[in-house]
Simulated assay, not measured.
Amino acid sequence: MEEFKAASPLEESLNHLKLSDQKAPGTGPRDAQHPQSLGSGCAPSPGQDPTEECFHDCQDSFEARGAVLDDEGNAQDDGSSSKKQTELEEEYLLELEKDMPEEEKQKRRKESTGLKEKGNEHFKKGDYGEAEDSYTKALQICPACFQKDRAVLFSNRAAAKMKQDKTEAALSDCTKAVELDPHYVRALLRRAELYEKTEKLDEALEDYKAVLEKDPSVHQAREACMRLPQQIEERNEKLKKEMLGKLKDLGNLVLRPFGLSTENFQIKQDSSTGSYSINFVQNPNNNR
């Protein structure tokens, strides 16, 4: 004999729910036309076996999560570091590809290699825009698990962008290449050149030093490590003078209502201790 338990208050309340309550109020003709938008998985195409696994297309994720470019093709800064963005993108792709068969991954890798070679041909001919497009398509196909392959593609695309004066976008691609393969000397060297071109001398020197650590035979990096420290020192001196000039102008603006100027205050350094002292001078012109 079957035994029945007394229904709990929660079960009774659930039993009183009407079937109409289960229908979402926002469901309408538009939703009926696009049923795949109501689910989170892949919708089977006509004639496709619904039991077959759906594998994510790398191209869709790349286009959806790619960097936003301005009118000149340079990546727009959204306030977060490019390294964090790259890690999120690569981790996102790896997660999507975790169930992809090895055979499919190798197929995509082969296709991306073909697109890379096509891009190299365009680059040699001077068709840098076409080369950039080929490298981009290769990145859209290349699985994220092949990090060194993707590093080469980012570096090659950076070279194509450099030729088109897309400096910031090229810098972003070089950084992605280095993050995927920290020992990639060519990507480091390209990024160092771009940093120097944009007058980011400290960052350039750091990359040139990293290149020498990995390959001491790179003459360009050795020469830059000898040249840049002097340029950095000269730049810092120039910035210091400009800053002191602005502070002097500000001081004169504050002192003017009192009939004074910064000339009334003389700063002297003690040669023995290195400390500074400030002396007030009533008539600075008479002391010259």
Rank of each mutant, 00 (worst) to 15 (best):
E3N: 08
F4K: 09
A6H: 12
A7R: 08
L10I: 15
L10Y: 14
L10A: 11
E12R: 14
S13I: 13
N15V: 08
S20A: 05
K23M: 11
P25W: 09
P25C: 08
P25L: 07
G26E: 03
A32F: 13
Q33M: 07
Q33N: 03
Q33T: 12
Q36W: 14
G41F: 12
G41E: 13
C42G: 09
P44Q: 12
S45F: 07
P46T: 04
Q48A: 07
D49K: 02
P50E: 08
D57K: 07
D57V: 08
D57Y: 05
C58Y: 02
D60G: 00
E63P: 00
L69H: 05
L69Y: 10
D70T: 07
E72G: 03
E72N: 04
N74F: 05
A75R: 00
Q76K: 10
D77H: 15
S81T: 15
S81D: 14
S81H: 13
S82R: 07
Q85C: 01
E90R: 14
Y92Q: 09
L93A: 15
L94F: 02
E95L: 12
E97A: 09
D99I: 06
P101Y: 07
P101H: 07
P101W: 11
E102M: 11
E102Q: 15
K107I: 02
E111A: 11
S112D: 03
S112W: 05
K116H: 03
G119Q: 14
E121V: 15
F123E: 00
K124Y: 07
G126Q: 13
G126D: 14
D127N: 12
G129A: 09
A131W: 06
D133T: 07
Y135S: 02
T136M: 06
I141V: 11
I141C: 03
I141P: 00
A144N: 09
C145T: 15
D149A: 13
R150E: 07
A159H: 02
A160K: 01
K161T: 01
K163Y: 01
D165H: 11
L171Y: 02
D173Q: 03
K176G: 04
A177N: 03
L180E: 00
D181A: 13
L189R: 03
R190D: 08
A192T: 04
K197F: 10
D202W: 06
Y208R: 04
V211P: 01
D215I: 12
H219P: 02
E223G: 05
A224G: 00
I232R: 00
L239N: 06
K241L: 13
K241I: 14
E242A: 03
E242W: 00
L244M: 13
G245L: 11
G245K: 14
L247F: 12
L247M: 10
K248D: 15
L250E: 12
G251S: 12
L253A: 05
R256K: 15
S261C: 12
N264G: 11
F265A: 01
D270V: 04
T273C: 00
G274W: 08
V281F: 06
Q282C: 06
N283Q: 15
N283G: 14
P284H: 14
N285A: 10
N287A: 11
